[in-house]
Every structure is written in structure tokens, then in C-alpha cells.
Amino acid sequence: MKPARFDYVRAESIAHAVEALAGAGGDGKVLAGGQSLMPMMNFRLVKPSVLVDINRIPDLDRITLEAGTLRLGALVRHRMTAEDVLVARHIPVLHAAMKHVAHLTVRNRGTFCGSVCHADPAAEMPMMTLLLDGTIHIASPRGTRTMPARDFLIGSLATALEPDEMVTAVDLAIPADGTGWAFEEFSRRHGDYALAAVAVLMERRDGRARNVRIAMMGIADTALRLSDVEAALEGREGTAEAFDEVVARLKASLAPNSDLNASADYRRHLAGALARRALADAWDRAREAHMEPA
């Protein structure tokens, strides 16, 4: 298990990086944390002709508060996201999700943006980006562009990124004050890829759920925002009956795959069970935050 030959570029800047990608004839790869890419290269499942190492590009390792968003640069490691005070204060659901991301040593190297680009259907970052209405910042020799996460993630290990493009940052929308949140994940062992996970955001106004956002992973070939299910809960009271009904709808709408670890039926059950817990938790947290009269 040794990687095939490649040409190596230590990019000094974003411009340098995308120029090198453009010169790679369509099979260049960006190396950030390498925690997903390097195993695939060692297995020779990925054999880039050019490997563009962006780890020395300055200023990409920042988490910054912009208007209503947190911006995570391309070299923000999982450990930084997990320990960042802005993340903990403004997006507690992401802070909670980070506890499930791999292991200490992998978190030291792996990056948020790298995980989004890798687009593993059972990894947390693509799902959280969808949940938080993420915006992907993309650079190429042709300039820069942005793209909503829902358009960016197109399939298992597949994104809308062109061969000469790299992701420079991801913006995550900060939920409104008092938004209830929950994150539930199940994996066979701590830190493994999830069999299923769900993240929920909801506000509570006048005793009703508003602006409901539900994202899931492990249940399709990409992480999903469940718009139909969100709509079904929108404006309803957060009662057990409402949650049960919404979960039933959720389960009916899923068509998960069977694989080594889980049959489709089990995955559907698991998705429902995790969603049920998450909906109730998010509702409870929302109530606490708003302190509305009962």
C-alpha cells in the first residue's frame, strides 16, 4: 500500500494552487489534512498526477465571524473547530457534532473544508454544512465564485468542483438567537463513520416550531436536507404526536442502501430513532432559549 508517483507542488498562495491544478490536466488533487485523501492514495484508489499541498498557504487556518456567518478557512483543522469559542457560542450544534468526528490524532490534521470536498456520505462536515445553509467559496484561475452547499454536494464522494478549482472557505449561517438544536449520531465504535446521524435546528415562536432545519447522513449517497419533513413540522406544536408523525413521514421518505454494517430496514429504523430523539431535544432547547410563557 504505497501511493503511485505524482508531481508535488507546495502552493505558496491560492493563485499558485489553482494554477498548479489547472496545469494537472484534470487529475490534480488538493492536499490539506490528508486524512481521507492519503488512505485512498495509499490504496491506489486515487492516483493524482499532481498533488497540490496547500498547507503552507497563509491565513487559511482562520475561523472568522462575518455578518451572520462563521467563515471557516480551508486549513481549519477539526481540532480547531472543536475548540473554537466562536463555534461553541454561535453554532452549538456544530460544537456538539465535533465530538463525533474521528479521533484525536485525525482531528489534529483533518480539515473542515477538506471533509466537505471529500463528500463522504457518512461524514459530519458535509451534513453540518447543509444544515447550516453553508456557502462554499471556490477559487480557480478563472476567478472566484460561491455556491450553496446543497448544489455543491452532488453524490457519494462527488462535488460540483471543477478540476482547476479549490475550496478556500465555507461560510456557515449562524442560527438565530435561541434556536433549539440537537445532534444525534450512531456508529459501531466511537469515532467510526456514522451508520446514521441527524442534526436539527428549530426556533420556537408562539409555542410553534419555526424555521425547522433537519439534515441527515448515512442514509443516502450524500448527506441530505429533509425539506419535506421540515415543512411537515413547520408551524406545529412540538408535541410527541407531532414528532411521531413527522418521524413516520421521514422514515417513509427514506430509501437507504444496505451495506456491510446495516440493512436498509435497520438504517431506516435507526434514522427514525435518532431523529425522534433529536426533534424532542431541539424543541426542548428552543423552549429554554426563548423562555416563552407556557
Partner: peptide, 29 residues
């Protein structure tokens, strides 16, 4: 394992643990 799962190759890279099987020597320049 050379795929980042077992941890036997863990070293410290600039003070933090890292998988040396998922790191290129050239990156450690």
C-alpha cells in the same frame, strides 16, 4: 495499516500527534 486507522505510526508533528502513514515526508520539510 497505512490507512490511518490503527495508530501504530503516530508521531508528533510540530507538537501534535499525527499519522505518519498519512503524511508525506516532503510535507515535513
Amino acid at each position: 495499516c497505512e490507512h490511518g486507522v490503527c495508530g501504530a505510526c503516530t508521531i508528533l508533528l510540530d507538537g501534535r500527534s499525527a499519522r505518519s502513514c498519512l503524511t508525506l515526508a516532503i510535507q515535513a520539510d
